[in-house]
Design a protein around this nucleic acid. Structure first.
Lengths: 172, 172
DNA sequence: GCCTCCATGTAATTGGTTACATGATTCT
DNA sequence: AGAATCATGTAACCAATTACATGGAGGC
């Protein structure tokens, strides 16, 4: 039900095809959520059947463009205001770090150093997004706010990985 | 295959029952992963069948205590060193924030204020855990490291939500 | 005796990934 | 002509949540 509503939200931004939606996930949302085309296409069919989106056009190679309906917009707004977001964040890499005591200290330090590098790279990516994004429309300002969340998260995790590496150095 | 290895890792720390494992998830790892008892018990049976853990004791009310085997420890170490962690973090609440432009500014502010309250509560929880946790064994120190990750994440997200709410106030 | 928590399990359903399958268009 | 990319869909499998189901032990 989450992905369903996220798709609705993306189509509220602008009409798109299933292919576009799947590319958007790949390119911009990979770190926050993932969705394969095999999950997206059936969901779009469901949304059409429920009257929340409709096919508004087509293109070459059987491309189908969908737009959100008034009913879809209403349902999306209700979801955003009337339901609580799920609070379980899944983060395998950080979870693994709680098992590093099983490895040789050198191996554990290697792992944490890779974490630092990863989070620093993500941080740079978000900084660039934040710097290059315009904030003229309401949708763009909201997107900027989401980018800021990623930025601060990566910053905190980078600092944490450094701290954890230091802990190993002083304890082991 | 992730949860399977995480369970192995927890049993590497000390022998435990399925109930203990499920409580451990609730108390220390809720922010990084979730696992219900209905998923844990069948996995424990699989691990026994594969020879990676064995039942080492029992207690009142049919309590079964499991310990890791040498084969289990080897498999766990191989997983930690030879496979890359998945990088897709799932975070519904942050994803939702990119759709707040669909709401009235007052509603969006409400959403973000609830985010502040939630993250502050979590932060207090982790601070208390961090203060009360012992760090005598290697496994306990590693758990402390995972708690620190949660603590820093919640701190960053609380500050972010405040910042985002302010942004809306000054822009809208 | 009653309530709460401890403790384990199974069944049904939903959500998500990987693999299978096909074909059109564009670029070189 | 051949390769890459665009574009859509289905099937099989694995992972995870929710609901169902049961019962013992300890505190009051």
């Amino acid at each position: 039900v989450i992905l369903r509503n996220i798709l609705l939200g993306m189509l509220a931004g602008r009409p798109m095809s299933g292919y576009d939606l799947s590319k958007l996930f790949e390119r911009f949302l990979e770190h926050l959520w993932s969705a394969r085309h095999s999950q997206i296409y059936p969901l779009l069919a469901d949304l059409v059947e429920d009257g929340l989106i409709r096919q508004s056009g087509s293109g070459p190679r059987g491309r189908k463009i969908y737009e959100i309906t008034d009913a879809g917009l209403a349902e999306l707004r209700a979801w955003l205001t009337e339901t609580e977001p799920g609070r379980t964040v899944r983060d395998e890499a950080t979870l693994r770090s709680s098992l590093l005591w099983l490895l040789e200290p050198a191996q554990a330090r290697d792992y944490l150093d890779r974490e630092v590098a990863y989070h620093d790279a993500q941080l740079a990516h978000y900084r660039q997004l934040a710097a290059s994004s315009t904030t003229t429309t309401a949708a763009e300002r909201a997107m900027r706010v989401a980018v800021e969340a990623g930025l601060r998260h990566e910053q905190a995790m980078s600092e944490w990985a450094r701290w954890a590496s230091d802990q190993l150095a002083t304890a082991g």
